[in-house]
Design a protein around this nucleic acid. Structure first.
Length: 898
RNA sequence: GCGAGGGUAGCCAAGCCAGGAAACGGCGGCGGACUCAAGAUCCGCUCCCGUAGGGGUCCAUGCGUUCAAAUCGCAUCCCUCGCACCA
């Protein structure tokens, strides 16, 4: 026993020499990484692991959500780097946007200046965290070098007909004085919704705006989701909901007005039950009719100005539409429940089989005609269906549908398309992306409006169109920049004005991950060849709040760029996606307004960056929310000091070393086992599980040194393995420990430990754990006060043999086993054992006898230590008979004496 | 309403895809070692009954498949999130 220097007192006996000062070591190692250029990835790197955190909006201060995001990507990036991969882990700034403009207005400064200060501040905080980022690839979207490519893309998209000018009713925030995308309107129960920034109720306005035609890609954006296994199901589902998909058919109705009106339906099977026709108030034909019928015009006015018409409101137009199925003339209504932007804004109504149609029919006293009834297999009895009382909306069998009676709904839908001259259509609810913003702090849209030539793109040679000096105004600032605004038309040279809208900042973030590939490139947005090789991003990490907008727009951009041959064969930008959970405090989201917050900088000042990183990754799996607690942070800090203390004690010769004895092999195997398990866990982003292995290994090394004089080579390998496994998570501490252990290189670039699990590791571990538990049970149940000796005996060879045979046998196991001469020799005992094997059901694989003995012998020190009793392990042929008789493979015989 | 994800011991939480040992961890609680003491560290216990490793009951509920179910299937109840006047 090594009683000379009890390690257990070490951490505190002389704290001043045992503890490290994060404030001292962290900057030192950050400098060392910089000097060695550890995080730079060369342009000629072959398909590096691309690990990407969603780039932040530079608000000026990092919050714990950022820290968590980057702690995750950094740990993964560092892990991959140690495995020998080239790793691209870049960072940039999503630096255009309204907050900077608002702040500039408030403080009477320039948004650019404000933004650049914020960036500098946030960058210094990231450096403080010791994030391993390739700053050579830093990208800042508000720099002309970046946003000129937004303009370039815009022009390219324009030529490819992906940019359109559309008149649309847009969401208008009267407070921000800007158009909002649907995505930026928060739903509200009482009205149309509120502005996502200022919560002001929004209004609607008709405006001409620039759009990207995302709808062209709706089908692919939707369908590919099924194959995107690397994305969490909830995000995929949110995108499915967002994009929407309705498979149906369109059919045309001839109207008494002379118009032919297209409808879209998913229930073409119910067409025989159509008893009226309805148009949205905004439908063109409704407008035409209104021109002649004042009642209709009045209704449309009311519908468009007020949001609270009753659901069944509507007005008969006096016109009729011909049902192509029946030839019948059905009355045409204009009804508010028909929405202009869903389907075609016109529908035939089947009150018997649609709830809204039913309600409308009842209110307007229109016939309800049932044409579908439940099949025999359905839950409802056809007798119980009363379509006068309620619509029956399930599929079923057609009735009252002329020659088609008896057809199943699904079949009818297919047949009717042909029969009534319709066409199959898949509709998506995704809309084109309005990118116009009436703000200053964004990318100017590179167009000029000429009174003679219309909208004319700014020639490529004149890009970038830079922003004029900031103007404070309540309206659109660029519109007020008189000098900047007036230019000569690029086509005719006449007087013209620039487009004064800027682009939605989601344009910036739709391709920034491509710019990282070649950030300084002056003649193209990115190096196409390299980007095609480096993309998709291997691992993308960010918040769930970007599930729809950013993550759909980026997918859209990637597809467009691939179609334009700027990329080759890259249809999706992000192979694997991880949405990290929230950092909470006291069960609630951290919020600086309520003071319920922990700020990174002061935390790092007192505990160090590593403590924060370790705590965050240790507290929960990345996708889950977790509560920040002071205890947790303290415990993470203690652990780091603990590891450091152990390493220093060893390095300074305070751990007496020797040959370790039988224990040594046990420890050696545990080191290998820990490395193997931790690696699997890192691979799956389960840092907390990997860290558990590290904690266990540290604890084992302490017990090893406490119990005996450890073998130097093993002990040192154990410490090095701990250090390496810890390095991705607590990189500064790991460097310091690595250095203390006598290494002159950096652990950041060290080779990851070997990850082969020792042979029979899991089985042996289970055997040892079970045996230890059995001993505890016996001591406990038998009331043994102070065990003096513990004897353990491996089952005899013949039992192992019998068990092995039994695993291969079917049928009469006992009979077949006892037919074996080798077992017959053991008579009654063999027969009993054969019976128990036969009754056992499944038989696990067990170690062969000699291996079992070795495993128990290696671990016997644990029993010795726990019970302070002399422990003997007998091999299969060495043990006393009475001990062996109870032993079975995987379950050694045990005898304990006081 | 549609869809997705869930319901595991006092609490948090793994395991479930690839069925096989009352079910990893952590917190809290209890006991012990070390200490003058505290802290730190270490060793146990923490569903019920058991003076030699045994028995019973168990993973929301109920059925079912199987030699064997927390794990697979069906049904029911509850929670969380997303979408929703989608024709």
């Amino acid at each position: 026993m090594n009683s000379g220097l009890p390690l257990r007192d070490m951490s505190n006996s002389t704290p001043e020499t045992r503890r490290f000062d994060p404030g001292e070591i962290e900057p030192r190692w950050q400098d060392a990484w910089d000097e060695a250029d550890v995080f730079h990835v060369d342009d000629d790197a072959e398909d590096p692991s691309y690990v990407l955190a969603m780039f932040p909006y530079p608000s000026g201060e990092m919050h714990m959500g950022h820290v968590r995001n980057y702690a995750i990507t950094d740990a993964f990036a560092r892990y991959r780097r140690m495995q020998g991969d080239a790793v691209l882990h870049p960072m940039g700034w999503d630096s255009f946007g309204l907050p900077a403009e608002n702040a500039a207005n408030r403080r009477d400064i320039d948004p650019r200046e404000f933004t650049m200060d914020c960036i500098a501040n946030m960058r210094s905080q990231m450096e403080l965290m010791g994030l391993g980022l390739d700053w050579d690839r830093e990208v800042t979207t508000c720099e002309p070098e970046y946003f000129r490519w937004n303009q370039w893309f815009f022009k390219q998209f324009y030529e490819e007909d992906i940019v359109e000018r559309q008149t649309a009713e847009l969401n208008w925030c009267p407070d921000c004085e800007t158009v909002l995308a649907d995505e930026n309107v928060d739903p509200h129960p009482d009205h149309e919704g509120t502005c996502w920034r200022c919560d002001t109720p929004i209004e609607h306005r008709e405006m001409d705006q620039w759009f990207f035609t995302t709808t062209d890609y709706a089908g692919e954006l939707y369908d590919t989701l099924d194959e995107m296994d690397g994305w969490p199901e909830n995000v995929r589902e949110m995108q499915r909901n967002w994009i929407g998909k309705q498979e149906g058919a369109s059919v045309s109705f001839e109207m008494t007005t002379g118009d032919s009106v297209d409808i879209f339906t998913t229930r073409l099977d119910t067409i025989y039950g159509a008893t009226f026709f309805a148009l949205a108030p905004g439908h063109d034909v409704a407008g035409e009719i209104a021109a002649e019928h004042s009642e209709v015009a009045e209704y449309i006015d009311r519908a468009e100005s007020s949001d609270d018409l009753p659901e069944t409101s509507g007005v008969f137009t006096g016109e009729y539409a011909e049902n192509p199925a029946t030839g019948e003339q059905i009355p045409v209504y204009v009804a508010d429940y028909v929405l202009e932007d869903i389907g075609t804004g016109a529908l035939y109504a089947v009150p018997a089989h649609d709830e809204r149609d039913h309600a409308f029919a009842q209110a307007h006293d229109i016939e309800i005609r049932q044409v579908v009834e439940p099949t025999a297999a359905a839950e409802h009895d056809p007798e119980d269906i009363d379509t006068e009382a309620a619509a029956y909306t399930d599929d079923g069998v057609l009735v009252d549908s002329g020659e088609y009676d008896g057809l199943a709904s699904a079949t009818a839908r297919e047949r009717f398309v042909e029969a009534f001259d319709g066409e199959f259509r898949t509709a998506h609810s995704l809309r084109d992306w309005c990118i116009s913003r009436q703000r200053y702090w964004g990318t100017p849209i590179p167009f000029v409006e000429c009174p003679d030539c219309g909208y004319v793109p700014v020639p490529e040679a004149d890009l970038p169109v830079e922003l004029p000096e900031f103007v404070q105004t309540t309206g659109n600032p660029l519109d007020a920049a008189e000098e900047w605004k007036h230019v000569a038309c690029p086509d005719c040279g006449g007087d013209a004005v620039r487009e004064t809208d800027t682009m939605d900042t989601f344009v910036d973030s739709s391709w920034y991950f491509l710019r990282y590939v070649s950030p300084g490139l002056a003649d193209a947005p990115f190096d196409s060849e390299r980007a095609s090789e480096w993309l998709p991003v291997d691992q993308y990490v960010g918040g769930i709040e970007h599930a729809t907008m950013h993550l759909i727009y980026s997918r859209f951009f990637t597809k467009v760029l691939d179609d334009m041959d700027l990329l080759t064969g890259v249809r999706e930008p992000f192979e694997n996606l991880l949405t990290q959970g929230m950092v909470r405090k006291n069960g609630e989201a951290m919020s600086s307004s309520t003071g319920n917050v922990v700020s990174p900088r002061p935390f790092v000042d007192s505990y160090g960056a590593d403590t924060g990183r370790l705590f965050m990754l240790d507290a929960a799996q990345p996708e889950k929310d977790f509560d920040w607690t002071d205890e947790g942070a303290q415990s993470a800090h203690d652990f780091l000091q603990n590891v450091y203390g152990l390493a220093v004690a060893y390095a300074e010769g305070e751990v007496n070393t020797g040959d370790g004895g039988a224990i040594d092999e046990y420890v050696a195997r545990e080191i290998d086992g820990a490395a193997a398990t931790a690696t699997e866990e890192f691979e799956q982003f389960r840092f907390n599980h990997a860290l558990q292995e590290v904690r266990d290994l540290v604890s084992l090394l302490r017990r090893y040194a406490d119990h005996t004089e450890p073998r130097a080579e093993t002990f040192e390998r154990g410490l090095e393995t701990v250090t390496k496994l810890l390095a991705p998570v607590a990189p500064h501490t790991a460097e310091e420990v690595w250095h203390e252990l006598g290494n002159s290189s950096l652990v950041a670039t060290a080779e990851w430990p070997p990850t082969d699990t020792p042979a029979g590791y899991d089985t042996a571990r289970l055997l040892v754990e079970n045996t230890r538990e059995d001993v505890r049970d016996i001591v406990d149940v038998a009331g043994i006060e102070e065990p003096r000796t513990i004897e353990i005996a491996v089952a005899p060879d013949w039992k192992h043999y019998a068990r092995q045979r039994a695993r291969e046998l079917d049928g009469n196991v006992v009979g077949q086993l006892m037919g074996d001469e080798r077992l017959q020799a053991h008579g009654e005992a063999a027969a009993d054992y054969a019976k128990s094997l036969a009754g056992a059901g499944h038989l696990d694989e067990q170690l062969p006898p000699e291996r079992e003995r070795e495993a128990l012998a290696r671990a016997s020190w644990l029993l010795e230590r726990e019970f302070d009793a002399e422990t003997t392990v007998y091999g299969p042929d060495e043990a006393p008979e009475n001990l062996v008789s109870e032993a079975t493979p995987g379950r050694p015989g045990i005898r304990i004496e006081e």
